[in-house]
Amino acid sequence: THSWDREAIQLVQTLIPRETVLFIADVKISFDSFRNGMAATVNSKTIITVNPDTREASMLFSYAREVAESGALDQDEKAEDMSVDSITDVFTVSQLKEKAQESPEAFFGIMYSFISKLDLDSSVSKVIRTRCSRCKFQVTDDMQSCTNQLCPGRDQGLSATTGFDLLVDFSDHTGTLHACSLRSPVAEHTLGCTVKEFTSLTDEERTAMKWKFLLERCKIYVKILPSPKARTGIRGMVLACSLADPGEVKQHMSALVQ
């Protein structure tokens, strides 16, 4: 709403983002030149129902919760907003967390950290996921259409992408950054393995791949962004990750150790 209606403003201020479904009847729809698009305005005839007890509202809430937890609602899909080559700031884990508390905006950095959690030997369904290309809802390859009732392309044939979808922990002498997203195509470059190759590996080969990286010092390019759903209030997205050169680690980490 951009109405100056005091009651509407007070109501909206009490709502919890991503936790509330609204049914709004009788709003005025008009072109807003300031926003350069259509906007809805409440007036004296408008009726706002918070969390209506309807099937559609339940479906919408379930969809929003699943997509929010997947990270798809976070603005982390824009790989083009900064190239890896232009990222130069080096952080320890604690410095990343401190900066995230100071800034509500996403930022970028480099860590020389150990991978302390990498569940490559979990079931394949927890490492590789298939999602609808249109709404990011998790699906399976054998589906004819997306099961999300609110998917914009549900009436069309299923358009899906399959890739690595991992949550990785990074640790250094200052702490641990939990549940960083390591997804395709970055994961393929990091692991040196395609999705198809990974699915054909034996359990022993997956465990061997895990220990190639686990507890090894890596150079990680990461995007940090606020996330109300995350336990710590922030999320990390891995933009690039490789085993670190020992000389480079010594040079940078000696400057960071207080």
Rank of each mutant, 00 (worst) to 15 (best):
D172P: 11
T194D: 00
C146D: 07
T140G: 01
C180H: 07
T174N: 09
V186G: 02
T176G: 03
K196N: 06
T140W: 00
D203P: 10
S184K: 00
F137I: 09
K136H: 15
L150K: 08
T194E: 02
G175I: 00
Q156H: 13
E188T: 05
A187E: 03
A179G: 01
S184Y: 10
H178V: 05
F170W: 09
L182S: 01
E204W: 01
F137D: 09
P185M: 04
V186H: 03
D165I: 07
M143R: 11
L177K: 08
T202G: 15
T147S: 12
C193N: 03
T194G: 01
E197G: 07
S184A: 08
F137W: 12
H173W: 14
L177C: 08
V195T: 10
L150W: 01
H189I: 14
M143C: 05
M143G: 04
Q156I: 09
V168I: 11
S200C: 12
T202A: 11
F137H: 14
S145T: 13
M143W: 10
L201H: 03
S145H: 11
N148E: 02
Q138I: 11
L201W: 00
G163W: 06
E204K: 11
A179M: 05
T140I: 12
D169H: 14
C193W: 01
D155M: 12
S159Q: 13
A179K: 10
T161S: 14
G192A: 03
L201D: 09
A179C: 06
A160S: 15
T190F: 15
T190E: 04
V139F: 00
L167P: 00
G153F: 15
L191A: 03
R154I: 14
Q138C: 02
T161Q: 15
F137Q: 08
